[in-house]
């Protein structure tokens, strides 16, 4: 049957089939509705494994440093700085000492001021940390010129 209605319809049907075919190859096999249902769980399952495979950088375990930097480890553990992880000041361990062979040593005053800039905030833990005003407390000199970060007690002053 020849009709001006049928011909465009063929084109539309062909297009729909084409899109469905492309979709079949383009959309991954594991794409679908997973545990959290259509509203929240519509995704490619493999994406979860992509995220699980992301590289871990921080270990946050001071024991890891014990064998090679025993002086620092033994020193800090007896002081109020024992609560700070080595990696917080020296950066992520990764596969140190293989890669990177050295971790960073940050001697800037700003490192210490994160906690020691005096902020007398009554309802926050900050008020309990001994604070200084960097404009008055030996300005222009690195804190570690005088203080030992691994033994900050005043007996440990250099």
């Amino acid at each position: 049957m020849k009709s001006h209605v049928w011909r465009p319809l063929y084109v539309v049907v062909a297009l729909v089939i084409l899109i469905l075919a492309v979709r079949m190859f383009y959309v991954p096999k594991d794409f679908g509705i997973w545990e959290r249902g259509y509203m929240y769980g519509f995704h490619r399952k493999g994406s979860e494994n992509d995220w699980k495979a992301f590289k871990v950088k921080y270990k946050f375990d001071n024991e890891d440093c014990k064998d090679c930097h025993s002086d620092k480890y033994e020193s800090i553990i007896k002081t109020p700085h024992a609560i700070i992880k080595c990696e917080n000041c020296h950066g992520p361990e990764l596969d140190h000492p293989n890669d990177p062979p050295k971790l960073t040593v940050d001697k800037r005053r700003e490192l210490c001021l994160r906690c020691h800039y005096q902020l007398p905030y009554p309802t926050s833990g900050r008020a309990n940390i001994m604070g200084i005003d960097p404009e008055k407390h030996n300005p222009g000199v690195e804190c570690v010129m005088c203080h030992n970060p691994h033994n900050p007690t005043l007996e440990g002053l250099k």
């Binding site: 997973w34 545990e35 959290r36 769980g41 995704h43 490619r44 992509d50």
Partner: peptide, 28 residues
């Protein structure tokens, strides 16, 4: 538990895992 961000995603790129974490599929 009811993440509006995952609900509005038009392509299923952001979603909630079974243990409740909302992730983004960077390839999608």
């Amino acid at each position: 538990e009811k993440p509006p961000c995952a609900q509005v995603c038009p392509v299923g790129a952001t979603y909630q895992t079974e243990d409740g974490v909302v992730l983004v599929d960077r390839t999608w």
